[in-house]
Amino acid sequence: MADAVPLLKGTLDILVLKALSQTPMHGLEITTWLAERSGGELSFDESGVYQALYRMEAKDLIKAEWGVSEHNRKARYYQITARGKRHLASETRTLVRHGQLVAAILTAAPK
């Protein structure tokens, strides 16, 4: 994974939220989900996922409760809230539009 892409600041939150919009997960599941979706190309410390989770929980975008994982281990499960869904929708629109604009400017052919 020498050519892994480092994550742009702030985008981890929205990616984690996206993961949770599918189904409630615990931290490791989210990490795995992100790795699979990016084909292993995103590079981040896994502790960063927890930073993002705590941050969003404080903002009432997600909520958490203790549960039991498939291998019978205690784990904290996270779930998106109504407010989180709204946040995800609006952030997604903004980020996508932003990405398109940046890409368009950077890749435009010189005149």
């Binding site: 490791l28 795995t32 896994e46 927890y50 205690k74 904290r76």
Partner: peptide, 13 residues
Amino acid sequence: EEIAAHLALRAEQ
């Protein structure tokens, strides 16, 4: 606990 659970699960994986 949460960190320990993460590390344990990851190691198992």
